[in-house]
């Protein structure tokens, strides 16, 4: 099974992780249209390529970012979310 490298705990079997979805900017709910909001809530980009995603190492509850190339099934890099020490 695939190996994912937690920025804090190191490389582990992917069964130790939970996927949290692609990191997508939230439109400003105060000003966006219903359509734009619905697109944010329901639609996802399925095309293959490098995605920035939320991942969580569940035994340690460490949330981090993984850049994953879904076309080649390669985890490019992983790092803590900006601002996390």
């Amino acid at each position: 099974m695939k190996i994912m490298t937690c920025p804090v705990n190191g490389p582990r079997a992917i069964s130790e992780f939970a996927y949290g979805g692609e990191i997508r900017p939230m439109p400003d709910p105060a000003t966006c249209s219903d359509d734009a909001w619905a697109d944010y809530v329901f639609n996802r980009n399925g095309s293959p390529g490098v995605k920035r995603e939320w991942w969580c190492h569940t035994p340690s509850n460490t949330w981090f970012v993984a850049e994953r190339d879904t076309a080649r099934d390669v985890i490019v890099r992983t790092y803590l979310y900006a601002g996390d020490n």
């Binding site: 939970a18 949290g20 939320w54 969580c56 569940t58 509850n61 949330w63 979310y81 601002g83 996390d84």
Partner: peptide, 20 residues
């Protein structure tokens, strides 16, 4: 829920901490 709330605060960085 604990996991998801942890994720929200990773994003929002409010001055608080959650313990399960």
């Amino acid at each position: 829920i604990y996991r998801e709330l942890s994720r929200w605060n990773t994003l929002w960085k409010l001055d608080c901490g959650i313990v399960n």
